[in-house]
Amino acid sequence: MIESIEQYRQSFDDYLQKILQFGEPAGLYEPIGYIMDLGGKRMRPVLVLLSAELFGAPAENALPAAAAVEIFHNFSLVHDDIMDAAPLRRGRPTVHRKWDPNTAILSGDAMLIRAYQQLDGYPPELFQPLTRLFSRTALEVCEGQQYDMDFESRDDVGIPEYLRMIEFKTAVLLGCALQMGAIIGGAEVAEQEAVYDFGIRLGLAFQLQDDYLDVFGNPETFGKQVGGDIIENKKTYLYLQALERCGADDARELRDLYSVRPTNPQSKVDRVRQIFETCGADRQTRNQIGGYTREAFARLDTLTGNPRAKAALRDFGEWLLRRDF
């Protein structure tokens, strides 16, 4: 990642360490410090800082909003991990495994409250639009999670439904991060909408790329088990595209493969990957990633403001999507 982006990340991490000095009860607050210290890309808070600077505000003015977004994001991960019965998060035990589900639920609740508290220091003319946007986004993330859970038991999920689900689960928080920075920077409504839309398109491209790399990525660089979505029978964009494009026999076999958890999962992964390639679902997914990426940068190009911040936003977007196909 380019040096300037790393500086934004370091500035945010320094701020985060200051605000995560908790007292008692330790059973409530230690899990919060644990999940926040697991790291990650910090892409959402960096987007808040860059957007604020793009529209004329010092990046430090946006640190509380950036913290609100990042704390909320990690809160959602704590609760998602409980629902998914996930044992690991970023290579470490999940909060509900390291402690217990009740602790994870309560600490997650406290994180949501702490996220909103970060916005308390903004003046009324900023607090109201920030809180309104943040609340709308938080509810959309919950809706996206519910859609995702609903899809697990449905055999009739369509591509538009899937795209709506990943928009709510992933993309809206990127759009929110960018618009919050724009609000702090005093951007006009049209500019706020454009930078929000940049985040939505960037988030959709990022999630579809994640779907693709789960099947076709390099195990040494992807950071997760390749084929995990196939083993878990997740109805991703690749799967839905394959059902639309392949013949009746392959479609029937694909549905059968996604109805079981075999004793030899690698053979299932290999066969599903072959079907994806045969019917062109892999090519269509790459094309869609490219389309969303181009749309994202086209919206960024319409924005005026600080040239350095705008260039850094482009660099950040390119870095985010620079994962080997």
Rank of each mutant, 00 (worst) to 15 (best):
M43Q: 11
A311S: 13
N218K: 14
N102R: 15
L208V: 03
L313R: 09
V272T: 04
G40D: 11
A62Y: 08
E188V: 04
E161A: 10
S153K: 15
M43T: 14
T278S: 15
P58L: 12
K18L: 12
N61F: 08
L313W: 04
D229S: 06
Q145D: 03
K268S: 05
V48H: 07
C176W: 04
R314T: 04
N74F: 01
R9C: 01
S135Y: 04
A298H: 13
A242M: 08
Q145P: 04
S259Q: 10
I230L: 03
L202P: 03
Q207L: 01
E60Y: 06
H96V: 04
Q225H: 13
G223N: 11
Q288G: 01
G56C: 10
D315Q: 15
G317F: 00
R245P: 00
A86L: 05
L49M: 13
E188Y: 01
L106I: 14
Q207E: 04
F222C: 08
P262K: 07
L254A: 06
E244P: 00
S153C: 12
G40Q: 07
E152D: 09
R90E: 07
E140H: 11
Q241D: 05
E60D: 14
A62S: 04
E191P: 05
K235L: 09
G203S: 09
A298E: 15
K224G: 05
R201N: 15
D109T: 09
D282R: 13
F316Q: 05
H96Y: 10
I275N: 06
Q192G: 11
E140L: 13
D155Y: 07
L49R: 08
H73F: 00
R114F: 13
T103I: 13
F75W: 13
P265R: 07
T278W: 05
D14R: 15
A85W: 13
T302H: 05
A171D: 08
V226P: 03
D324C: 03
N233P: 05
L106D: 01
S4V: 14
E24F: 11
L54M: 14
G217T: 12
R9D: 00
